[in-house]
Design a binder for these strands. Structure first.
Lengths: 248, 248
DNA sequence: GTCTATATGTGGATAGAC
DNA sequence: GTCTATCCACATATAGAC
């Protein structure tokens, strides 16, 4: 394990630069040369410290996701302990899951919006090694939160909850990616139209907080929406009778 | 313009294959060689017919989006004509916008799920020429639908509507991309857990229909969710007083 | 319109001196 | 741990014969 001298510094600088460049241009379009160049380290340093470009990407995510996973599990632990065996409220679960992530956007030492954008953009990358990596990193947390939602919404078919978790992940992923066509069409960041003063000069920190404020109600509204009627599948009609509880 | 002989056939074969390979591996990771190889045409054919790899991607989208844009505008025209000057219902607007797209997934001649997945995955690509292209393609339609939503929800701040349109686009984009970590973690497509028989053997057509049935209520629920309270920005508190109408 | 051959550049990775 | 130099596979694009 490399540790002496400034090697630690080199490692960190590579990770920081790679995080930014992968975010800006995507994995495939970012070359090792551009990374080592911007980080002002030698071209061979990446392979020495990480082994390969793929391994570098994994490490860029690992150092952030390790913290995020831990926080998400702890947040759920605390909620469940405080509830003393009773099911949690959906709003609490969403706050623990999405709020924990979105708060990373306000904290530069955790990667800030750079990491959030990178995460949102990378989650839709088709490369096999990326999909496999995320599956492993997310497995435990997703499973815990899925079960918490099952308990919180006992009258909703579990398949429906999984679908909606899927949709919520999508809304969040796309929102933090910040590549929306709306932004390009309107020529401004979402939120500039708010009539709020100096919105165009919002720092990343304020942007992250605002995003969270806007996104959480949307997600909760989607999660609690009435169930679909399944016009094409009469078999399942019975299972979806009734609606979701309106009080959460 | 090339038109005689089998040139039209060559063009179409290239477009079909490029659509599939760009979807499977992404733009950067798909080489011209792999496209021309799979299409069984000469390597130089792409540059002859389209000019460049970038132009090829644009043409792959243009032939589908031309149809989609037309349908979306016509759908809105019909609704507005039938309403005779009255504001539309949000559910009608969402159905026209998202339903039109999702129905493409059921029709192989319109690209089917291959095109939908490609669209969802490409919308988050950071490449400048892609963002620019989509901005141009989407501008008119987005603008029309945005205005329709403004009219449909006169009590909701317009900035809030733009945010939620953004979130809805994200949920849909991510859902049709089909790269969700949930699918990898659970080792199955979303919907397999439904307890519905033979769900794992669903064709793309059935999958598209099911996706639409699940997604539309979620989007509508999110769009109609109560407004956030803006804890950090007391200035805007007055503007967000009250909630959304509960009847749509 | 189609093909071969090739120009020209860039990619990731590594060997071996220091 | 860092650096130089280099290997070699593969990329897009094009020139020019057919």
């Amino acid at each position: 394990m490399p540790d002496s001298k400034a090697s630690n510094d080199t490692r960190e600088r590579i990770l920081d630069v790679a995080e930014r460049l992968f975010m800006q241009h995507g994995y495939e379009a970012t070359s090792m040369r551009s990374i080592t160049g911007a980080a002002e380290v030698n071209l061979a340093a990446v392979n020495y410290h990480f082994g390969s470009k793929e391994a570098l990407l994994r490490e860029v995510f690992r150092r952030r996701l390790a913290w995020l996973n831990q926080q998400r599990l702890q947040a759920l632990d605390r909620l469940e302990e405080a509830a003393g065996g009773a099911p949690l409220k959906p709003s609490q679960i969403l706050e623990a899951f999405f709020g924990t992530l979105l708060r990373m956007g306000e904290e530069p030492s955790l990667g800030g919006m750079t990491f959030l954008r990178l995460l949102g953009r990378t989650l839709t990358e088709p490369a096999e090694f990326i999909r496999t990596f995320f599956a492993g990193e997310y497995a435990e947390v997703i499973d815990r939160y899925k079960l918490a939602l099952f308990r919180a919404l006992p009258d909703v078919p579990q398949a429906e909850i999984v679908w909606r978790l899927h949709f919520m992940l999508g809304a969040m992923s796309y929102a933090i990616a910040g590549t929306d066509v709306l932004q390009v069409v309107t020529g401004c960041e979402v939120g500039d139209l708010a009539g709020e003063a100096a919105a165009e000069e919002l720092g990343d920190t304020a942007l992250a907080r605002r995003l969270a404020q806007r996104l959480m109600p949307f997600l909760l509204g989607g999660l609690r929406a009435p169930l679909p009627r399944f016009e094409e599948s009469p078999i399942t009609r019975a299972a979806s009778a009734g609606g979701l509880p309106t009080e959460v």
